[in-house]
């Protein structure tokens, strides 16, 4: 029913954890809703040059949702935020071999990446305003 890769990410999730949401270099994306059965929180630590140096996640959801977010943290580290913003859910589907009923888990992971990057950008904008 589940691919080997999903099972592996489920049993040994990469980068579970929490980054300080108040750190100006941390972008947080919280997507989904408890009543829908999945909530993902993705946090990215981004250098001043816009490179993702760390990523942490926590997910409430099925095994595929956990695997999608775990894999997303793996693939995103080292990328620039512009590159991260280009990541498509289909890359996650392909890597994890998700069946059609689980595509929404990968969409949620893509949304989480975009939300985290947007949060970081908004924070940076605010900082600039304060300084100028």
């Amino acid at each position: 029913m589940y691919s080997e890769k999903v099972l592996d990410h489920y049993s040994h999730p990469r980068n579970v954890g929490t980054l300080d949401p108040n750190d100006p270099n941390v972008g947080t994306g919280l997507v989904g809703a408890p009543e829908c059965g999945d909530v993902m929180r993705l946090q990215l630590k981004i250098t001043d040059d816009g490179v993702i140096e760390d990523a942490k996640f926590k997910t409430f959801g099925c095994g595929s949702a956990i695997a999608s977010s775990s894999f997303a943290t793996e693939m995103i580290k080292g990328k620039t935020i512009d590159e991260a913003f280009q990541i498509k859910n289909t890359e996650i589907v392909k890597e994890l071999n998700l069946p059609p009923v689980k595509i929404h888990c990968s969409v949620l992971a893509e949304d989480a990446i975009k939300a985290a990057v947007s949060d970081f950008r908004a924070k940076q904008e605010k900082l600039k305003e304060v300084h100028s």
């Binding site: 589940y2 099972l7 489920y10 059965g37 999945d38 409430f60 959801g61 099925c62 095994g63 949702a65 956990i66």
Partner: peptide, 11 residues
């Protein structure tokens, strides 16, 4: 609470 059922069944 805070744990999704299908993930639980996988566990």
């Amino acid at each position: 609470a805070y744990v999704e059922g299908e993930a639980m069944m996988m566990g």
